[in-house]
Simulated scan of single mutants.
Amino acid sequence: MKDYKVETLIYYSKLTLDVNHIVKSSKLEIQEKLGEYTKNGYRLASTDASNFGAAMYIYLYFEKEM
């Protein structure tokens, strides 16, 4: 049997000339979440992303054997 967890991270777009500002600002937080779940025995099973208005939603799907 597997245990599943979903982590949702939300980032907001801002007016800037740097088109990669969300990528740059999200790397550290995503890496921290990966480390946190890995420490608890989970592995990253899948990812997804969507946007709505000025927000970008990143979904991290984790699983582990029970």
Rank of each mutant, 00 (worst) to 15 (best):
Q31D: 15
L15F: 04
A54M: 12
V19F: 08
M56Q: 13
F52D: 11
F62G: 01
M66P: 00
K64S: 07
D48P: 00
T8L: 14
V6H: 09
G53F: 07
G41W: 10
S26K: 02
D18A: 11
R43K: 13
I10E: 12
D3R: 12
D3M: 09
I22L: 15
K24P: 00
G41L: 10
Y42Q: 05
E63I: 05
K27A: 13
N40Q: 15
K5D: 09
S25K: 07
E63C: 06
M1E: 10
E32I: 01
I30T: 01
F62I: 05
D3Q: 15
Q31C: 00
A45P: 02
Y57Q: 10
K33D: 01
S25I: 03
L17H: 06
V19T: 07
A54I: 12
T47A: 06
K33W: 02
D3C: 00
G53I: 07
Q31S: 14
I58M: 13
Y59V: 04
I30F: 01
T38S: 14
M66K: 15
Y11D: 00
K27N: 11
L60Q: 09
L17T: 13
S25V: 04
Y37W: 05
E65K: 09
K5H: 11
E7G: 00
Y42M: 07
E7S: 10
K64D: 07
Y59R: 06
M66F: 10
E32P: 02
D18C: 06
E65G: 03
Y4N: 08
D48I: 00
I22T: 06
M66C: 06
E7P: 00
E32S: 03
A55P: 08
G41C: 10
L28Q: 10
V6D: 09
V23M: 04
Y42L: 06
T47P: 01
E36H: 11
E7R: 10
A45T: 01
S50N: 13
L15Y: 04
S26Y: 02
T38H: 11
Q31A: 13
A49W: 09
E65Y: 05
L9T: 02
E36K: 14
Y4S: 04
I22E: 04
A45F: 13
Y61T: 08
N51A: 11
K64M: 07
G35E: 03
N40Y: 06
K27I: 03
K14R: 15
L60F: 08
S46N: 15
Y37I: 03
I58V: 14
G35I: 02
A55G: 11
K24H: 12
Y11L: 02
L34C: 05
I10T: 15
A54G: 06
M66Q: 12
Y59W: 04
S46H: 14
K24C: 00
K33R: 15
I22A: 05
F52H: 10
N20H: 11
A49F: 08
I10D: 02
I10S: 09
E36Q: 14
S13I: 00
T47Q: 11
S50C: 09
S26N: 03
A49Y: 08
F52E: 14
Y59D: 03
K14Q: 13
H21V: 06
M56F: 14
Y59S: 04
D48R: 05
K27H: 06
V23S: 09
